[in-house]
Amino acid sequence: MTNAVLITGATSGLGLAYAREYAKEGYNLIITGRRKEKIKDNANDIEHTYHVKVKVLIVDLANQEGLDYLLDEIKDDEIEVLVNNAGFGLKPVLAETAREEMDRIMFLQMNAVVILTQCILKKMLIKNTGTIINISSDGAFAVMPRNVLYSSTKLFIINLTEGLHMELEKSNIKVQVVCPGFIDTDFHESAGMNVIKKKKGFLKFSSPEDIVRMAIKDLKKGRVVCVPGIEAKIVRLMVYFLPRKMFYKIAINFTKKRNKKMNR
C-alpha cells in the first residue's frame, strides 16, 4: 500500500479519530486493533465515506509474536505517517499487579513503540520525509497511585520522542508526542475504572476528535511536545512548580477521593 498512515490501537478513541482525520486528507490507512468486528465496521465506514483504502490487522501488540506479525505485514507498505497509539491502563497498585500484566504494558508502551518506530524510520530516512506521532498522556507529568506503570511508560514515550526529534534535526521527518488529559473514550472502562465523565469545568473529558485537531495543528507549527487542552496544560504547570511533598499529598488525596466515588 502506498501513501499510507499506520495507526495502532485504532478500534476507537484517539486511534479512530486519527484514522478519520487522515482519511479525510486522502491517505490510505493501515489500522490495528483486537476487537475484530468493531474495527472492521469502522474500516468499512471510512472507506465508504472518504474513498480511501483501509487495511485492517487484528493483532495484540503487547507481546513479541504480535509485533513480529505486524512488522511482517507492513514490510512492503510505503508508510508516510506512523501513529503509535495502542495502550492500556492498569487499576491495581503495583504490589498487587500480576507479572503477566506488567510485562504486557511495558512491552506495548515501550518495546513495541521503539521497535516499530525504528523499523518505519529507516524507510523514512531513505526518502527524507515522514511523520511519527507518539501518544503519551498528561499522566506522564503527574504520576498517581494505582497508575504507576502507565505513567512511567508514558514518560518514557516523551523522552523517546524528544530525543528522536533532536537526532533528526537535519532531516525533513517530523516527530511529535501528544500528551492529552481526560478523553471521552472507553479507556477507563477497559481498565476496570468506573469514572464519571464531566463535560464541563476543570478536568472535563474532551472528545477524541478535538484532541486530534489540536494535535495536528501543533504538528503543523512544529511543536514537538503537544499538550492539547487547557486542563492538561494546567496539570503540567502545577506539577512542575509544586514542591514534591505538596504534590505527593495532593496526588494521594485525589486518588483516595476518586476511589471512594468509584466504590459507591
Rank of each mutant, 00 (worst) to 15 (best):
89 G>I: 04
81 V>W: 02
75 K>P: 14
82 L>D: 00
65 E>N: 13
83 V>T: 05
78 E>P: 01
69 Y>R: 08
75 K>C: 15
58 I>Y: 05
93 V>N: 15
90 L>N: 04
70 L>Y: 00
80 E>T: 10
89 G>C: 04
75 K>D: 14
72 D>T: 11
72 D>K: 10
87 G>Y: 10
60 D>K: 03
93 V>S: 14
85 N>P: 00
74 I>C: 02
75 K>V: 15
92 P>A: 08
88 F>S: 05
92 P>K: 05
79 I>M: 03
76 D>L: 11
80 E>W: 08
76 D>V: 06
68 D>M: 08
59 V>E: 08
93 V>Y: 14
83 V>N: 02
84 N>E: 11
91 K>C: 13
64 Q>E: 15
66 G>P: 13
61 L>A: 03
72 D>A: 13
76 D>I: 09
60 D>W: 05
75 K>G: 13
56 V>D: 07
88 F>Y: 04
60 D>R: 04
63 N>C: 02
58 I>P: 05
80 E>A: 12
57 L>M: 10
63 N>A: 02
85 N>M: 01
89 G>Q: 04
91 K>R: 12
63 N>W: 03
72 D>E: 09
66 G>K: 14
92 P>E: 08
67 L>W: 09
73 E>R: 15
71 L>F: 08
68 D>L: 07
80 E>C: 10
81 V>H: 02
65 E>S: 12
66 G>Y: 14
70 L>W: 00
76 D>F: 10
66 G>D: 15
72 D>I: 14
82 L>I: 03
75 K>A: 15
61 L>D: 05
67 L>Q: 07
92 P>M: 09
86 A>Q: 08
59 V>P: 03
74 I>L: 06
83 V>Y: 02
60 D>L: 04
56 V>W: 08
82 L>H: 00
76 D>Q: 14
55 K>M: 09
64 Q>F: 15
56 V>C: 03
59 V>I: 06
90 L>D: 05
68 D>H: 11
74 I>M: 03
91 K>Q: 12
